[in-house]
Structure formats: structure tokens, C-alpha cells
Amino acid sequence: MIKRTVKNVSEALQGIESGMTIMLGGFGLCGIPENSIAELVNKKVTNLTCISNNAGVDDFGLGLLLQNRQIKKMISSYVGENAEFERQMLSGELEVELTPQGTLAEKCRAAQAGIPAFFTPAGFGTEVAEGKETREFNGKMHVMELAFKADFSIVKAWKGDEAGNLIFKGTARNFNAVMAGAAKITIAEVEELVPAGTLDPNEIHIPGIMVNRIFQGATFEKRIEQRTTRKRA
């Protein structure tokens, strides 16, 4: 067994420097690597390019990095729900590359799978396709998209073991599963880290070969963005 464990978040994030490109898993606030984001704030690294479906909210998630002006560029599909983000974007302080969500996911998956580029129909005929190669397949137009190239990928899982194997819970799998192994170095923070042999190999979502460093997060707030409920009858 090859051990992928590191002691804590600061050891896990060693080597992350200003100006790097970092992928961060999560959808909204669901399944975000909160311990690592807090450590990025502590490290005071700046000029980051962040690839993440969303940009958090003003006081949580990637919003914390935005407040400190640590992000130079965001690559996302949807960035509502964040006033500071909007302000920085409209004032030109923050560069933003909006990408269709399925394309964003596939650009991660392509990097994870060693595929340099792919064609998708999403965005054809829109400003997303401007300057990109287009091609017809089976009578339908497609746009060529490139795999992401990132220095670090930071994902969050429910359970993980010493070998780096990951299991996600519910919709917190989202971009975490496609970003694992999609950058030069992948860091996984998990709610529960267990000894190798504890998890059933049949139930592993991401094998440890895709994860370079794994640690158990100290605390998880797991904030809910839209708490919607129904009354008991």
C-alpha cells in the first residue's frame, strides 16, 4: 500500500504559490474544501487563477479569497449570489471566464483522463465559441474545448483512506470527482480518514492513484446556501 496521508492542511498545501492555477471542487457551498480554503487565506497567496463552478458567497467559500483580493481570475459557470464578486468583476479588478457547466466539467474530466481536447455542442453560435475551432459531426455543429492545465486540484470527500481512495456523499460528489487527478498535484480533504482496508474497494468513487495528499479536515461547517423545507402534515 502506498500511503498518501499528510499530517494536516498546512502540509497538504505546501508548494502552493502566488500566481498558480488551482481547481477547487464543490457546487455552490456543497462539497467545497473548506479547510483548504481557510488555509489559502492564511497563506496569503495572491494572483491565483481559480477553476471552480461557483465563487462562494460573500463570507464563505471562495468569497473569503475574493475579499482578500487573492484571486486574479475565476473560471466558473455561475457566479451569482456574491456581491463582492460582482463588484470586482464590473470594476475590472477580477478577470472572469464564464464557461458552460458541462464544458467546465468535461475540461476537468479531459485533464483527468489525459485527453487534450474534445468537441461539444454547448455554446455553438454564442460568444462562448468566439475564437474557437468549430466542426460539424453528424449534421450538428460543435465547439472544440481544451483540457484544463492546473497546478493543484483541491477536492473534498466524505470518507477517504490512507491510500488516498475517496468516497463522496450525495450531491457533494459534483466537481470533486472530476477534479481529482486533473492537476499536477491533487489534495483531498476528507471528513473521515480511515486506515487502508476499511473501505470496501467496490464502493470507492476515486482510486488513490488520483490523489497525492490526503488529510482529515479539522472542522466542517457545511453551510447550507438555500435552506428549503416543507412543513410536516
Binding site: 457546487f27 450525495g170 450531491t171 447550507i224 428549503t228
Partner: peptide, 27 residues
């Protein structure tokens, strides 16, 4: 599209799970 098929209604109060949301980020 955030990764669930077979979505049901909103949870009863007190049964919300931060890990189970829809694409509108609702529990």
C-alpha cells in the same frame, strides 16, 4: 445537473442535509 436523478420534495424541517441539494442550491 449538479448530480442527482430521482429528486424528491424539500425535506421536513430539521432533516436538511447540506450534502443533498439541487442545482438551485436548495436542500
Amino acid at each position: 445537473e449538479n448530480g442527482v436523478l430521482g429528486m424528491g420534495p424539500f425535506p421536513f424541517e430539521g432533516e436538511e442535509d447540506a450534502d443533498i441539494i439541487n442545482a438551485g442550491k436548495q436542500t
